[in-house]
Structure formats: C-alpha cells, structure tokens
C-alpha cells in the first residue's frame, strides 16, 4: 500500500512556514539548555532566538575590504534556501510536495550544496579566520560525506526504490531503524556534521574567532544561523521518513506523528551540541574512513543480502 500522495503546489507556501517553526523550536530548546546551564530560568532561555533575531535585524551589515561580496552573500543566504528545497521530498504524514523518483538523491544533492555554501561564506570574507573555517568544513566534509551516502542508500536498497514515499511504505511491517541501526546512527551524525552543529561545528568555533562567522553581522549572520537550524530540522525530518516509518503510529493522525518524531529527533540533535567536545577534522578523518565507513558498508551489505535473498 502506497498511501503517500502528492499535494497541490499551493501547499509549498506552507512548507517553509512549518520548517521555520520547527527550526525555531530547535533554537528555543538550545536557548533553554544554555540558560539552564548558566542558572537562569527556562523562560529566559526559550526567548533567546527571538531576542537574537531582533538584535541581528537591528544590527548593521558588514563587509570587508576587497571581499568577494557576491559569493559571500550567496553562501549566507544559500543555507536557508537549500534547507527549504529539501522539504520538497520530505513526506509529512500522507502528504508530500514532490514525490520525485529520486527523492533520496535529491536530499543528497542538497546537502552537497552545503559544502559549497559554507566554503563560500569562509572564502568571501577575505579574512584569515573565516578562510580557515571554510576549509575546515571541507576537510570535515570529505570525511562525513561517504558514510552519509551509504547511510542514505541503505533504506533505498531495502525499499527497492529511491522514491521517498516507497521507502516509507516499505516500513509498514518493520521500521528500518530496527534492522539498520548503524545506517541510522551514521545518518544522524552526518546531519549534525553538515549542519555545522555541535561537535562538528569546528568551522565556526571560538578558537578561530567564529571562523565563517567572524566577519558577518546583521541579517547576513541571522541567515547563516537560521540556516543551520533549518538544515538540522530537515535532516531530522528526513531521518523520520527513512528510518522511523514516516507518519506511522497509533491514535494520532499521520502528519502529527511526523512532526512529533521530527521534534524528538531534533531535540536529540540540539542536546548533543553541548555534551561532547569538538571533533576536529584531522581527528575525524581516520575514524570516519577506517571505522565508520567499513561499518556502514557492512550494514549495506547485510541489508542487500537480505533483499537479494528475498527477491
């Protein structure tokens, strides 16, 4: 039974709003965690994203001497745009905007855009710290991307299809998380990595004065920060479709289940941020290529053998 249907393009107006609200919830949770850690109230933390937005909208924008302004601004604005484009293939309950036959590849394409965008933010500023940040991201990307791709392809193998609705439908008997735990974990860590978040936020870390963020202020900075949360949110939502049976669940309607699962996963991603030390790219490389990559390959092998035997 394939009960996911494409909806009218008019709903595409709503999708970015939903994405924005979920991302805001993620940012609020982050604010709460920060506030609690500093001994302040729950409420003072929850409003932090709103206060920061107001602050950055009031702040003047900045550029640097002989900056590559066009490329720089493409990078700043691009993260949000990429995240919004990802929502096209993410089913919410029984609905999806664009059920293209290569939905999984579409998601992959969008997260490869992030490589270019983050690097452009670092490059465009003509600032040493930003440049180091941009290249740090690339060094990290060559390590997380391959495990991510194999983690993406594993559910597709099990579903015999790259169409996201087929992947969701294939989980009616058993959610993929149950027999693809390695792929799931690798996918989640990769989402955190391409969102430039938590232990993988070395390209924007304090040791290089904010790296890619060093020179940006005002609305440019707002777009980068919002883009990070939006990427994290779409990553969580896609994990729900790939591994958690999409909108499947008792009692509640499908769309609500998708939102609930997405929020839970997003909360886990946000929480991860403060709990772990940074994973510097040169430390990541060895582990990613020698331990994680073979592990996720093994996962793909097991799944494909099962699929091949079943026919």
């Amino acid at each position: 039974m394939n009960d996911i249907v494409e909806v009218n393009p008019g709903w595409a107006l709503l999708a970015p709003v939903v994405l924005g609200l979920l991302a805001l919830a993620g940012a609020a949770l982050n604010g709460i965690l920060v506030a609690r850690a500093e001994g302040r109230s729950f409420r003072s933390g929850a409003v932090i994203p709103v206060l920061e937005t107001a602050r950055l909208m009031r702040q003047r924008r900045r550029t640097t001497v002989a900056a590559d302004v066009l490329l720089w601004r493409i990078g700043c604005a691009g993260l949000v745009v990429t995240a919004v484009l990802k929502t096209a293939v993410i089913p919410v309950g029984p609905w999806v905007l664009a059920d293209i036959p290569v939905g999984v590849v579409w998601f992959n394409t969008m997260d490869v855009f992030v490589w270019a965008l983050v690097w452009l933010i670092g490059w465009g500023a003509n600032s040493a710290h930003a440049l180091v940040g941009g290249y740090r991201f690339l060094a990290q990307a060559v390590s997380y991307e391959l495990p991510l791709m194999f983690a993406l392809v594993t559910p597709a193998v099990a579903a015999h299809s790259l169409r996201v609705s087929d992947v969701v439908a294939a989980q009616q008997e058993l959610w993929f998380i149950v027999w693809m735990p390695i792929a799931f974990v690798v996918f989640c860590l990769s989402v955190v990595a391409f969102s430039n978040w938590g232990p993988f936020a070395t390209s924007a870390s304090a040791d290089i004065a904010g790296g890619i963020l060093t020179e940006v202020s005002g609305v440019d900075r707002l777009l980068i920060l919002a883009g990070r949360y939006a990427l994290l949110t779409t990553g969580a939502a896609f994990a729900v479709a790939l591994f958690f049976g999409g909108g499947a669940g008792p009692l509640l309607p499908g769309w609500l289940w998708t939102l609930v699962k997405t929020l839970l996963l997003l909360a886990a991603f946000v929480t991860l941020r403060h709990r772990l030390p940074a994973v510097r790219p040169e430390r990541l490389a060895e582990v990613a290529w020698i331990i994680v990559l073979p592990a996720v390959l093994l996962q793909t092998l097991v799944v494909s053998i099962v699929v091949a035997v079943r026919g």
Partner: peptide, 28 residues
C-alpha cells in the same frame, strides 16, 4: 505539479531571503 511545487518552494525561499534583507534596511 511535482516540479511546480519545487519551483514554488524555491521562489518562496528566495522571496523570504530577499524580504528579510528589505526589512533589515529599515530596522537596522
């Protein structure tokens, strides 16, 4: 309609970004 949806998404995203820049001209 699949590809119209994607085009609409792209348009909405670009308009939102452009709108923010426009608003920031007045609020900054």
């Amino acid at each position: 309609s699949t590809y119209i949806s994607i085009a609409v998404l792209l348009a909405v995203a670009l308009l939102t970004v452009g709108g923010l820049y426009l608003v920031a001209r007045y609020t900054a």
